[in-house]
Design a protein around this nucleic acid. Sequence first.
RNA 1: GUGCCUGUAGCUCAAUGGCAGAGCACCUGACUGUGGAUCAGGAUGUUGCGGGUUCGAGCCCCGUCAGGCACCCCA
Length: 434
Amino acid sequence: MATIQNIKGMRDHLPQAMLLRQHIVATLQQVCERYGFDPLQSPVVEYAEVLEGKLGDDEKLIYRFEDHGGRQLALRYDQTVPLARVVAQYAGQLVLPWRRYAYGPSYRGERPARGRYREFYQFDADIVGSSSPLADAEIVALLCEALSALGFPDFVTMLNHRQLIGGIARTSGLDEAAAGGVYRAIDKFDKLGAAGVQEELLRSGVAPRAAEQILALVQIEGDAPAVLEELAARLANDERAVAAVANLRAISEALVGLGIPAERYTVAPRLARGLAYYTGLVFEAITPHWPEGSLLGGGRYDELIGQFAKRSIPTVGLAFGIDRLHDVMEQLGLGPQATGTAVAFVTIFGPEQTQASMALARELRAAGINTLLCLEPTTALGKQFKEADRKGARFALVLGPDELARDTVVLKDLRTGVQEHVERSSVSAKVRSS
RNA sequence: GUGCCUGUAGCUCAAUGGCAGAGCACCUGACUGUGGAUCAGGAUGUUGCGGGUUCGAGCCCCGUCAGGCACCCCA
């Protein structure tokens, strides 16, 4: 091994980072289960053909390889396509609608940057087998509660609909083929501004009048009902767009019913999403503290599972970007600030007191207290305290000759610096109640 | 995958082509049965890696690896 380093775009997560990441995952899991979702885990490796033909142009980013048996394999690109495979494969055993969550790494051969990695962790939640707008609303409500639970103060979920974007293109006199360029252009609105998008539209061959109309539609703003009303009026002669508006209206009304505050979501006609399998609702959550992109994204994909199963199974879901959530939360100082898992550090006064200290550590652990035991009985007490401090332990405990004689323990609170003699028999209760 | 920028001690960064440095962190001690604070001392580098130009390269050139930014796209 000539070079000691990790693969480009793939990271090691040291303990301090892992504590925050585990907090994020545990919180998401808790919220999902509160919504009645059940866990699923599938392999990181799939047959290449399972992933092919589902992602559009992004397919070139798939990690492919051949195994020792000559099988053409691929690392999963997301957890949505594997979900579709699982649903098709176990159709008889699953009770639809099926709500499931899944957590794990996915792989994309992209150029790494801040918030973009080649190995990245996603936490997915999907509702399989329902086309009801209540299903869409449940997913959006879940994500709002999850981001709130993580402590994000000011996120907004942007909602849009595939057929709304399509309707905007059609109403502007463009066919499906030209629509791709339109999606890409309007998606850059927040980055380029109106003038920039117009320039982009003209460059991709859109007529000036159509470009202006697209810009006007895309810039409609306000609360969800107002935006939808305006869109309904302007897209009245496009049947599919009208249906899309009605769908979004049903979803946003359901969000009201589910208790999601109005400032947490908005209908944003400018939101486009690249993944080819989306068919209806699409959404992203953004926060001003993360200008690089979205913290999570998702939507409805009613035809994807049908590519594996014999019939189409309507599904809506989302993926949280754990790495991005982690990066923003670290930047904002959200989440636990602990440097380690230990609460108590049991010192060893000297070789003669080793047995007594081990017994004390055992007792604390039995009481459910995360406890570090000193490993070098001959180490100066000062160094042991220093180790306790640097490991982030809240308490240091000392069992010296005096304490053993009086059947007490010295319990020092490293945060306040206050220490006291505690009855040997009440130590763990004392630590636990602090 | 394309273009641009960057890479020096554990971290943040200095060093006109001329002896590789500072702050923080780290280690030892002052210190008593006790961490953080203060003081005194100490250690630290194949300048990402490999070539080239030069009397001489951290600095210039080529390649490579990694990171960042833009494109593309997304979590």
